[in-house]
Amino acid sequence: MPVRIISTRERVTAFLEGEIDHHSAADIRMDIDSALMQYKPNLLKLDYGDVTFMDSSGIGLIMGRYRLVQSFGGKVLVTNLSPQIYKIMQLAGLEKIAKISKREDVNSADNK
């Protein structure tokens, strides 16, 4: 499973795992959207702590979820980003639609 989801009425939290590309994004999208449609939360939190790779399909994934969450007045929060993925999200201007934040321990994973 590339995504694990914990849902309440206030918040849907999706823990993404592994590599996010055009191939894996389809399943992730379906799982998150079914939780969003069921709970219509105020907040969608996407946790990238266990994501090892992402290309622009991951940007499309966030943009698509933003549109859905916005349609019932919610917000999107993207957390635990590696420096590399944070850089792509900035490049894409995602800060305009979601609050994005880097991983706490930035020293270990990326330059071993």
Partner: peptide
């Protein structure tokens, strides 16, 4: 449109 961000070449 939709799920594609239009960023492939930019990346």
């Amino acid at each position: 449109g939709g799920e594609r961000a239009g960023l492939g070449f930019a990346v």
